[in-house]
Design a protein around this nucleic acid. Structure first.
Lengths: 152, 152
DNA sequence: GAAAGCCCGACAGAATCGGTCGTATACTAA
DNA sequence: TTAGTATACGACCGATTCTGTCGGGCTTTC
């Protein structure tokens, strides 16, 4: 449980791949899809979504494709996941603006909202760059705790 | 995304309810279901599952029902969620023992496994008792970061 | 103008989730 | 002993979500 969707995985993998190839001006959806064995059309839609949210820049035509809109250090895993999977809610009762209408006495979700914030904080602290150099990611994740702990 | 299932929510709510009524020897599934407006039969199945994993003790017959098997301080949210929703995996590629067979080059999941551990750590640090006294839960969650940070 | 690529909506198959039903079993009380 | 209460468990179905595909349209480069 608590699983990311495959789409989010694909998106993270694609951004990581782009970060690993900074020399090329743009990579097509098919290029990335072939590199990982991901369905090309599905990845295309994911990349389009990431483009619409401003994480990628797209370029049509020959030798077109996608490129990171920002430095990979400035793109967090959280942004990618939210762009693809939508807002992050650990509690199934909170859906967007309206809360737990079925169970008004659901006092569970208040403490779980803290957990939610923590998870979001950890994901925010991990950048695409970290994924590209995976050795450092563990350290980053550890640092994150301190940071998150300061924001109650 | 990253949502708990409703069953897990129900389970947490039920355990919290049991923790709030330590004086009664046992509460039936229906009692708890009525208190929160949860479908009684569904909650019954959830509580049966929690019984099988050793978090609850059940007693059939008149005045029977369920009771916490341990002190509410000794039952973590993590245990409850895992009992109901199964093992916690943030990456959709890792399913139990076998890893990412489709994409052997999926280097994404290694750093995300750290995130996974962090989330598990936070959930482990929150007890049913904390849920019952929700004011304190926030503080507990904050402490958790330090603890988790020490276990790379 | 043709090929390579992005853009986008619709849709179908699959998996999971939420919830119900029926039945069997265990325990208590009268 | 019998009736009533409650758990235990498996089968099942409708709904939702996820994954992936198809088709057509638009943009840029050669």
């Amino acid at each position: 449980m608590l699983r990311l969707t495959k789409k989010a995985d694909y998106g993270l993998m694609a951004l990581k791949y782009l970060a690993e190839h900074p020399e090329t001006p743009a990579l097509s959806a098919k290029d990335v899809a072939d590199a990982y064995g991901i369905p090309a059309q599905l990845l295309a839609k994911i990349l389009q979504r990431l483009t619409k949210t401003g994480l990628l820049r797209s370029h049509a035509g020959m030798n077109g494709g996608y490129a990171l809109a920002r430095d990979p250090r400035q793109i967090s895993a959280f942004e990618v996941i939210r762009a693809i999977d939508g807002p992050l809610f650990i509690t199934s009762c909170t859906k967007g603006t309206k809360a737990c209408e079925l169970t008004p006495s659901c006092t569970i979700k208040e403490p779980l909202a803290r957990v939610n914030e923590t998870i979001a904080g950890v994901l925010k602290s991990i950048s695409i760059q970290d994924l590209a150099e995976q050795e450092h990611a563990a350290g980053k994740a550890r640092e994150a705790h301190g940071l998150v702990a300061l924001t109650p």
